[in-house]
């Protein structure tokens, strides 16, 4: 693991390693190096299994952060390769030649985030949003509530309640009372102690 991380950092201009667990490390590399880096990991370092591709919309920084998660059956650990790409006109190199299954993720990212993967098979075909117009729904500047209210005829009379307080008041009234009195008791004792001290 450590050797692989060092290799990535020296060969592909990798940034700092973000070690989440003993067997899960994320490394950030420049977007242009991602395909090479993944190819190296697949063919030389034994990370043959592509777990998933995911994207996060960092609207504050103006980037999409792509994460390619790989798994090694021999070493029993995971490496995540992160790359930032610009939010405007977002485009990324396709990896469907490394893993054919990646085309499904890329199609999904194209549909939900509007990230283009030129050359990826059927990337422009919608999976879920047939005939979608406007900005892709998973981008953070897309207001899903407003869209839903405009499109789907909301029914009047919907009330919103915080689940925790609502449950406590409706279903567990006596337990709540006991909890409150215990809290008062503890607080009162603490106060008295403070006075004594």
């Amino acid at each position: 693991m450590k050797d692989t991380i060092d290799k990535i950092r020296s060969m592909f201009d990798g940034g700092d390693a973000d070690e989440k667990r003993e067997d899960l490390v994320f490394v950030t590399v420049p977007a242009t190096q991602v395909v090479d880096c993944l190819g190296y990991l697949r063919d030389r370092a034994g990370y043959r299994h592509l777990v998933m591709i995911s994207a996060v919309d960092y609207i504050e920084r103006g980037v999409f952060q792509l994460t390619y998660l790989l798994h090694s059956y021999e070493k029993q650990n995971d490496i995540g390769i992160r790359a930032d790409i610009g939010r405007d006109d977002a485009s990324m190199d396709s990896i469907h030649r490394l893993w054919a299954a990646a085309q499904v993720y890329q199609r999904e990212l194209r549909e939900m985030f509007g990230i283009d993967f030129p050359g990826s098979p059927r990337v422009d075909e919608p999976m879920l949003l047939e005939g979608w117009e406007g900005i892709p729904p998973m981008r953070r500047d897309f207001d899903t509530k407003k869209y839903s209210e405009e499109t789907f005829f909301p029914r009047e009379g919907r009330k919103t309640a915080d689940p925790a307080t609502h449950m406590a008041e409706k279903n567990y009234a006596s337990e709540e009372q006991v909890k409150r009195s215990v809290k008062d008791l503890v607080r009162g004792r603490r106060k008295r102690k403070g006075n004594d001290g």
């Binding site: 879920l128 897309f142 839903s148 789907f152």
Partner: peptide, 19 residues
Amino acid sequence: TVNGGMYWDSYNTINRLDH
């Protein structure tokens, strides 16, 4: 199907079936 349920603000599920 009544009012969207827990998916009431989703971009992709309908809110009222009777429409």
